[in-house]
């Protein structure tokens, strides 16, 4: 217990320095709280509105995770289709690339036009933006089966294109790639959900930021931002842990 605390301390004491510098900067320069609230004010705002923040944070977390998982599922399914039908991948890859290269601020209004305002639109945006990397990672994972394993499969009469090969060899081979996609995408999905909420005005931390800013409640807006970064880091840590735990089973 003490050693873990010590570990956390040695790794993250820089954060304390940052907080102290922030507080120092704000009080020395006597900056108006509308420009930059002090850490103290931000923390107080968090504590005073704990229920409110918890509810909104939960909402954003759920939308982000939902979008991430849907994007992952969609990515895997489409990648499986592209794997089984190479001509299809010639169609899918450019489409996926196009989808990915539209900036989120341009992308969101288009989706809103189609799907309307609301949390479901945030979910769609997160799903679509998670889809592409998942698709790429999964597809390259399916194609990464080592020659010696393919040879073995063929030697027992299993073609390296069919369902059985996919189910027993290609699919499991892609697991480390999918873990990587999850780890890299989890924090991004959260930020995408946040931005979408902000732009659409759907409930969640993004909307908290939007409203607090227009009400000039900077402490609240900053608190939401702080909470979002903490969540993002937590997402990354969670999926890194997950990745670490299972990846080693894929080393021969």
């Amino acid at each position: 217990m003490i050693s873990t605390l010590k570990g956390i301390w040695t790794r993250y004491w820089g954060i304390l320095i940052l907080l102290a510098a922030w507080q120092f900067f704000v009080s020395i320069n006597n900056i108006n709280s509308i420009v930059a609230p002090s850490p103290q004010a931000v923390v107080l705002s968090l504590i005073n509105n704990a229920d409110y923040f918890a509810g909104e944070a939960l909402r954003t977390t759920l939308t982000a995770s939902g979008g991430l998982l849907l994007g992952l599922l969609l990515g895997i399914v489409i990648a499986a289709l592209a794997w089984s039908t190479p001509t299809l991948s010639g169609l899918l890859m450019p489409m996926a690339l196009l989808l990915r290269s539209i900036p989120i601020v341009a992308f969101v209004p288009i989706i809103v036009r189609i799907a309307g305002y609301g949390t479901h639109t945030v979910l769609i945006v997160t799903t679509v933006l998670s889809f592409f990397p998942c698709y790429v990672f999964a597809l390259s994972g399916f194609q990464e089966v080592a020659q010696v394993r393919k040879d073995f499969c063929r030697s027992v009469g299993c073609k390296t294109v069919g369902w059985r090969f996919f189910r027993y060899v290609a699919m499991p081979t892609a697991v480390p790639n999918i873990l990587t996609a999850l780890r890299v995408l989890a924090p991004t999905a959260l930020l995408v959900a946040l931005v979408a909420e902000f732009l659409i005005g759907a409930d969640g931390l993004g909307y908290v930021m939007l409203r607090a800013r227009s009400d000039l409640e900077m402490d609240k807006s900053w608190a939401a931002a702080l909470l979002a970064s903490v969540l993002s880091v937590a997402f990354f840590a969670l999926f890194s842990w997950f990745d670490k735990k299972y990846r080693s089973n894929w080393q021969a």
């Binding site: 010696v148 394993r149 894929w250 021969a252």
Partner: peptide
């Protein structure tokens, strides 16, 4: 037919 190679090619999972 059964084959075994220098690289064992076992499925690690």
């Amino acid at each position: 037919l059964g084959i075994a190679m220098q690289e064992h090619g076992l499925m690690p999972w």
